[in-house]
């Protein structure tokens, strides 16, 4: 989770990843940021993220992102 937070901070520093659960709904992460995150997650955790995974439920919070990574690693 720490590694994930580091990635998020690096790509979009102006967000409160500890508490925010509306990263997509409130437009904090745009499509450019989403794809940058995907690229970093694939490199850091060895997962493969398909277009089907790019839904608000998977990107609205750091926890949701972490859940997706864990699910794809399993």
């Amino acid at each position: 989770m720490e590694k994930l937070l580091e990635i998020l901070e690096d790509i979009q520093p102006e967000a409160d990843y500890e508490n925010c659960t509306t990263l997509i709904d409130d437009g904090i992460l745009d499509s450019f940021a989403i794809l940058s995150i995907v690229s970093e997650l694939e490199d850091a955790f060895g997962v493969s993220i398909t277009p089907a995974e790019i839904i608000p439920e998977n990107f609205n919070s750091a926890q949701a992102l972490w859940n997706m990574v864990e699910r794809l690693q399993a």
């Binding site: 499509s31 794809l35 277009p51 790019i54």
Partner: peptide
Amino acid sequence: MKDYVFYPISL
């Protein structure tokens, strides 16, 4: 375009 072209091309 974002969901059906941009993401599939990028990924």
